[in-house]
Design a binder for these strands. Structure first.
Lengths: 182, 182
DNA sequence: CGAGATATGTAGCAGTCGCTACATATCATC
DNA sequence: GATGATATGTAGCGACTGCTACATATCTCG
């Protein structure tokens, strides 16, 4: 790996930290470079574009998230929908995952407007998330896709309610969902 | 009403159009003023701040949304949760409400970072939404709060999946929710 | 008519944005 | 040690940001 590639890799890692701490909005070249211990000039040497910088950094953030998800449940474990929902929500609403969730919301808001690289990243994260749930939900083949989609929507919806300042509603929704489904 | 208040009012109305069309990110004074048929100078004459401009404009957008919600169902109508969910989702996922949903996501993303006026606006919209659902859901007093919160989360979650480019997952989640709940 | 309040245009400030031209420093290879 | 590739700093450009000072219109009321 050339020096350039090493620096680029190190920059991505530290910019991911910065992005998680400070958010996507207002993540401009100079602050990102400062966080990476570099300069805007060098960032545009390692990457072609600001979009390229953002795509690489968001990709790293997404990779960390999926790694944390994989670590949360052993590969073969299968849970019924309500138990899985509770487990996922307690992870998602924890303070350690909160920075990821905040960035996730920003990415989705950008994707809703068709911006790149938000669209591609959002699709990737969501796809990985859906697959992860699909692999851990205990249901018949006929029911699994619907239950997995519903679980995904419920968790993301609760996440949104929490972000909007209504953690009470989010918790109530999760509790009702666990109670309602056998 | 003074001339100033008239112009201010007209500016809010046209800036709300602009915000719905172009989004919250990058809604800067000069484009907003141009949309209002005015100048940045005058915007800061009508309003104290850019934050003031944004708060007024977002407030107008929120007012329009709640008005549309109220028009969607007659005041006294009560529906069981699954039927209400279907009705709300078909409205939310329609092209006419899509601009509102895109702005809504941006507001929530800002609120998640504690920004003002996003926090206050998000809380207001969500509270109004919750009240609206509470008034139209047909359930016992014991079940109503949980069912309403869950319905809210499910709709917003499906909205998020749709925004992330997975309308298929959103529709599957809504279908599963309607099927699962009696 | 004249004086004061109200309304609006012009011009610009200091800062940030993404990005680039140019010069230089460091290093590997012949 | 000369030469070319790789790496990095300096400086700045033009556009945009929120915001303001100053001048000027226009209108109201005594």
């Amino acid at each position: 790996m050339s020096v350039r590639e090493q620096r680029r890799e190190a920059a991505i890692e530290r910019m991911a930290d910065h992005l998680l701490a400070e958010g996507l909005a207002g993540a401009s070249l100079r602050p990102l470079a400062a966080a990476a211990g570099s300069s805007d000039r060098m960032l545009l040497y390692y990457f072609t574009d600001k979009d390229d910088v953002l795509a690489a950094t968001l990709g790293r953030v997404a990779a960390r998230l999926t790694a944390m998800l994989d670590a949360a449940l052993e590969p073969g474990a299968k849970l019924p929908a309500d138990a899985l929902l509770g487990a996922v929500w307690s992870a998602m609403s924890s303070e350690t995952l909160a920075p990821f969730m905040r960035v996730w919301l920003e990415v989705v808001a950008g994707a809703a407007r068709g911006q790149e690289p938000h669209r591609a990243i959002a699709s990737g994260i969501l796809g990985g998330f859906a697959d992860w749930i699909d692999g851990h939900i205990d249901a018949t083949d006929a029911q699994r896709p619907g239950q997995a989609a519903l679980l995904l929507a419920t968790v993301d919806g609760a996440l949104l309610l929490d972000a909007a300042g209504r953690r009470d509603l989010a918790d109530a929704a999760i509790a009702a969902a666990c109670a309602a489904r056998p």
